[in-house]
Structure formats: structure tokens, C-alpha cells
Design a protein around this nucleic acid. Structure first.
Lengths: 289, 289
DNA sequence: TCGCGCCGGCGCG
DNA sequence: TCGCGCCGGCGCG
């Protein structure tokens, strides 16, 4: 293992290459997961290992922010592998003509109006023409350039097998290479609203301010889902959940629920992500509806 | 100036007493404001001064997080003083029978259902009985325990002079003691929805994730405002605004707008907070409607 | 003691 | 180069 590749000196600072570190340690990480170590423990272990080698090499501690940035990425890489494996397994047992699929998205990015791409990356799962009159997304079409939200961490979709016969190898590849967006690229412009079953927010931890970030995402997605007569679920997944986090996620009403006088929840489930099994729960919940 | 009071040794760490530091430096801060130094510059100056004395005393740098926490507070203390002075001035020139008032709120906090207080602190501005049948907040009454949001940074309200004849001394006192909640305490349970004109989010800087925190607040408040047939404005104020921040704040549609098919904006104005004058703009905008 | 709400430090495309 | 979206470090009540 060549620890020099873990760090890159930049102007005035040393960069921590979180993705490289993860790849170097991925075999051990998978082992630890199989030994049922908690995801928090594993991330703490990668964190401390990175810190140790940084200190060895440069004689001082890395910035907290650089490790925060990496920890978020490590958490996602672990979750991608676990989710992909779970869904590979689910697909092998399915007895209908659909496949379940999970994937991450490119980051949302402000797009020029004349571009065919929309600023909210999740909307680019649908073909631009589906916003046309008489098409499936007509109802939100007039506002499509005014919808902003971060790219959700994960989508769970259910798609006819005939449209994605090769999905199992793609999921297998994604489980082994959790830092790639092949599945998104494969599905871009091809989904219909009713293919989407669930959207997932993944965090290592919450703060009482940061917890409103995914709630805004949920507010927009639930409003879109309602307008399109869909039933998209929104799940919160975090390795740390305070009692207040749980209560708020379980209870919070959607803004459009207030306006319509309907008790429409923002969040359909809140899960503590400690072990592989924790993710299985909401995958089942998401598709059994 | 006794720098020892700036810091308090705690178990395993040294606490930075941001409020004490601010009070010690407040005269100089006011001077710098009068000299038209930018708010960012002033906060950077307090930050560096704190860091310098911390280092002198303990031989190492303080945690970034402790200075972040303080910088947010310093920004609010400065803004409270400026806003209070502006509004004192506005009130002296008013020729109707109303006073303008601005104030901060206690932090939101999960409340027990049987308590008369609600979890969203802003809702405690209204009397509990106003949620009763036939009263002003009846329309959101059934969901009042499912509404969650952080306490907004500032409220701007317009209130009949006869209800608050003593408001000018209170504003004067608030300008001089920006860390107190007397005005909120004075108004608690006494406001009507139409007293509220504007809600303000104040930040030193945004990040592309953190910018959705006030947008969630705006989404809930605008939904409440719509349901109550009010026209509460929501303003973003920040010392740093990227081009993307500006575009998103200026363009974003409210979730309930999507559902209703109406172009309802989340944000009514985005202001760069560098000097005193920047706050005057939206105070005028907020009350002239 | 913990909950609230603060914000800069990133790595990567 | 900057935009995205990551998250722990608080002080204070």
C-alpha cells in the first residue's frame, strides 16, 4: 500500500484523496462489514487511519473539513455497495416481470434554460419531451425551470425487465465499483414517474440545522409526486439520530399538505444505518407498495 | 480588557466565549461600522483577534468550529443593532398609527403536545386560543403539532401604536443590547398573522447544501402564509452570495405553488449584507406593501 | 445533559 | 475556476 498516493500537495495545503484511500482499503472494509462491525466504526477507522498517515507524513493534523468531506463519501460508497448487493439479491427472488434498481445521480447544477437538461438532476431521468402537452410531466412543465433541489443520494426504481435486461450485471459492477454513475447514465431520459418508488437521504450524522436540508428535498419531491399523482416515498437514513431528529422526521407535515388541509407526511421512514440489515428494511418497504 | 474572560477551560477543551468577546469589542465594532467597514471585514477582525489571544494563551489554534459558532453570533449581534437603529429611525418618521418592530426569537424546541407552547417558536407569537374554531389560525390548527422549522433569524412586524406604546425604548435597548429577547417576550401570544410582514434569514456565507436550510423555512412559512391568506415576505441576507445562490433564491418556486399550479416564489428578495445601508433596503420593501 | 442553529473546511468534476 | 454536497466543530440555554 502506497500511502503517498493518499495525499496530494496543493498550493498551501495537502489534499486527502478520499476515493483512493477507500479503494486501497476496500477489501478490509468489506471484511469488516461481513464481521458485522457498525458503519460508524468502520468510517471512524478509515478516518483515523487517514489521519495517522497524514500526521506521519506531514507532522500535523489534517483539517477537520477534509476528513468530513471524505467521511461523507466513504459512507456513500459503503451504502452503494450494500444497497446494490441487497437489490441484486431481491431481483433474483422476484417472480414478476420487473427489476428493482438503485442508483446515485450526478450533482445538480444550474443549467441554462435553453439547454435540454434541467437544473434538478432528478428531473433529467425523464425525457425532455415528457414535459410536453398531454405527456406524463405536463402538470409540472410550466415550472420546470423553477424547481431547485440537491441531487438525492439514492433513487430506488422498479422497471420492466424487458427495458433493462442487463441490469443485474450493472448492479454487480456497481457493487464492486461504488463510485460510478453507469446506471444513472443508462436510465437518463428513459424513466417514467411511476418507475420511481423511493428517494433516500443518507448521512453519517445530523445537526438540527442540517436536518432541514433533506426535508427541503422531500418537500419538493413530495410536491412533484403529488402533482403527478404518484406515491414516491422519502426515507431518511443516518448513522446517528437524536430523539428530536426522529420525532421531527416522523411527524413533519409537507408544506403542500398544510395548504391542501391534508395530513401529508414529508418522510415515510427513518432508519438508523449501522449494519447491512438496516438497509434491507426500507428496500422491502419501498417496493412493496 | 481582560482576555482571560474570553476563554474558559472545560473538560478537554478551551471554550471561546463569543458573547463576552463581542461585548468587550462592541465599541470598536460600532466605530468600524460607522467608518463603513464591511461586515465581513469586521467579523474577520474579531475572528483574528480571538484567534490571536487564544494562541497567545494556550499555544495552539482554536477549533474552526468554535470560531464558526461565534462568527454566526457576531453577525447576528451586528445585524440586530443595525436593524434596530434603522427601525427606530423609520418609526420616528412614520405618519400613521403603527410602529414597525424587529426582533429575534428563542430557539425552536420540541414541545410536548400537552404544553400550550408549540415546537415552531414562531407560532408562539400567536395566542393559543387563536387556533380555536372561528379564530384567525383555525385553518392550520389541525396540523399545528406537525409543523417544524428552525426559529427564523428575524421577524419584521407592523403593530398598532396603541398596542405597543413603549416600543421605541425597547428598540433602543435592543440596539444597545443585541443579545436579548425582550421584544419577543413582550409580543409572545399577542400577535395576529397580519402583524407579520417579513421573515429574514441571515448568514455570513452559504454553501450549496446549507442554502436549502432557509429555503425549507421559507417553504413552511409561505405555506402557512398562503393558508392564512397573508402575504409574509421572506428575505435572504448574506455577506457572501454566489451567482448560483442568487439565481436559485430569485427563481425557486414554493412546493405548494407546484401543487396549486401557481408561480409562488419562496424568496422575495436576496440581499448582500456588507454595510448598514443594505438592511435599509428590505426594511422599506417589507413595510411598503 | 442535550438540543439548537451557527459555519467554514474540504475533494472532486 | 468554481459549484456541489459532504459534515463535525462548537457556545449557549
Amino acid at each position: 500500500m502506497n500511502h503517498e498516493l493518499w495525499f496530494t500537495p496543493r498550493k498551501n495545503k495537502i489534499q486527502i484523496n478520499g476515493t483512493i484511500i477507500y479503494k486501497d482499503l476496500s477489501e478490509k472494509i468489506i471484511e469488516k462489514l461481513n464481521d458485522n462491525l457498525s458503519v460508524s466504526e468502520i468510517i471512524r477507522w478509515i478516518r483515523e487511519k487517514s489521519q495517522y498517515h497524514f500526521r506521519e507524513e506531514y507532522g500535523y493534523d489534517p483539517q477537520v473539513g477534509s476528513l468530513n468531506n471524505s467521511a461523507g463519501r466513504w459512507n456513500e460508497l459503503i451504502a452503494t455497495t450494500i444497497l446494490s448487493k441487497i437489490i441484486l439479491n431481491v431481483n433474483q427472488q422476484l417472480e414478476n416481470s420487473f427489476y428493482v434498481v438503485t442508483f446515485q445521480l450526478p450533482k445538480s447544477r444550474l443549467k441554462n434554460k435553453n439547454n435540454h437538461q434541467l437544473s434538478s438532476q432528478i428531473l433529467n431521468l425523464f425525457h425532455p419531451s415528457s414535459f410536453n402537452k398531454g405527456q406524463l410531466l405536463e402538470q409540472i412543465s410550466q415550472f420546470k425551470d423553477q424547481i431547485f433541489m440537491p441531487s438525492p443520494d439514492y433513487i430506488i426504481a422498479v422497471i420492466p425487465q424487458k427495458f433493462i435486461p442487463s441490469i443485474q450485471p450493472l448492479l454487480q459492477h456497481q457493487a464492486e465499483n461504488p463510485d460510478n454513475l453507469e446506471i444513472y447514465q443508462f436510465l437518463e431520459s428513459k424513466l417514467k414517474p411511476n418507475n420511481i418508488k423511493a428517494i433516500i437521504s443518507l448521512k453519517t450524522s445530523n445537526r438540527s440545522d442540517r436536518r432541514y436540508q433533506p426535508l427541503f428535498e422531500a418537500a419538493m419531491l413530495k410536491a412533484i409526486s403529488y402533482t403527478l399523482h404518484q406515491n414516491w416515498k422519502y426515507y431518511m437514513v443516518s448513522s446517528e439520530l437524536s430523539s428530536a431528529d426522529n420525532t421531527i422526521f416522523e411527524t413533519a407535515i409537507a408544506p403542500h399538505g398544510l395548504v391542501l388541509g391534508k395530513n401529508l407526511k414529508l418522510v415515510d421512514g427513518t432508519y438508523n444505518f449501522t449494519q447491512k440489515e438496516d438497509l434491507l428494511k426500507f428496500v422491502k418497504e419501498a417496493i412493496n407498495d
